[in-house]
């Protein structure tokens, strides 16, 4: 489940008029990115319903740490859209301005997943990637659905 406060490792959604915000918090920046990706999946379906059966490799690059987060979400959205898949497990590694990740999931099963909506793309609205006072990392932005 989503944590009540962003100061704990985990993910949550935050409200935006027409769209939805995704927020991940982790001990490292990579973990915050992984948590935010869980928030992304749960816009579409219940994460528990997605089996981690198939692994996909994803990479992204941007010299701006915040835009790297946007690139990460956009790469996931691209894979979800073109492979018609949903993902439930993420392992992210970030070296300088490069991100590489393994993600696990399965093809969309409309009956079982009841996918609510497809995601169009990540926006720069409410975009933040930062280390908080307590030393934990936060990564968030609004995504267009």
């Amino acid at each position: 489940m989503a944590p009540k406060s962003p100061s704990h490792v985990g993910w949550q959604h935050f409200d935006h008029d027409a769209d939805v915000g995704v927020r991940g918090v982790g001990i490292t920046r990579a973990e915050a990115f992984e948590q935010a990706a869980l928030a992304l999946t749960s816009i579409v379906t219940q994460i528990e319903s997605v089996e981690a059966r198939q692994r996909i490799e994803i990479s992204a690059e941007n010299s701006d740490p915040e835009l790297l987060f946007v690139e990460w979400l956009d790469a996931l959205i691209f894979e979800m859209a073109t492979r018609k898949m949903l993902f439930s497990r993420y392992k992210v590694d970030i070296q300088a301005d490069r991100l590489s990740a393994s993600v696990w999931g399965e093809p969309v099963d409309v009956e079982r997943h009841q996918p609510a909506v497809e995601i169009k793309g990540a926006t720069l609205t409410e975009l933040k990637v930062e280390e908080q006072d307590d030393g934990q990392w936060l990564a968030q932005c609004v995504v267009d659905v």
Binding site: L67, I77, K120, A122, L124, T125, L127
Partner: peptide
């Protein structure tokens, strides 16, 4: 359209400085 929107949004956000456009908000 979604892909074009996302790609050009990022490219424009990173190029605004080169054009000397001071954005009140990056988005």
């Amino acid at each position: 359209g979604h892909q074009i929107g996302t790609e050009y949004l990022k490219e424009m956000a990173q190029s605004a400085g080169e054009f000397g456009i001071a954005l009140p908000d990056r988005e």
